[in-house]
């Protein structure tokens, strides 16, 4: 296992590359999830003729 992560001395470069790629993709997915939540909530608050509209934002 240790030899696998060492990658014959290239471990630092390989895991920096793979780690950053995984991190960026994770950030993209989390951003999508949080934006989806806020956009759905915003859409509920602007629903036409929504009797429960707490903000009065509906046109």
């Amino acid at each position: 296992m240790t030899t696998f992560f060492a990658m014959n001395g290239y471990g630092f470069y390989i895991w920096s590359a793979y780690g950053a790629a995984a991190l960026v993709l994770a950030i993209e997915l989390l951003t999508l999830r949080s934006r989806r939540r806020s956009v759905l909530l915003e859409a509920r608050l602007t629903r036409p003729d929504d009797p429960t509209d707490p903000t009065g934002a509906a046109e």
Binding site: V39, L41, R44, R47
Partner: peptide
């Protein structure tokens, strides 16, 4: 595709079809 769904809800909010979505009602 996930992003275009967000964009659709964002840009078309106030439209009837968005208001009828289950995920919008339950948001």
């Amino acid at each position: 595709l996930a992003r275009i769904r967000i964009i659709m809800v964002e840009r078309e909010r106030g439209a009837a079809w968005v208001g009828e979505l289950e995920e919008v009602r339950n948001a």
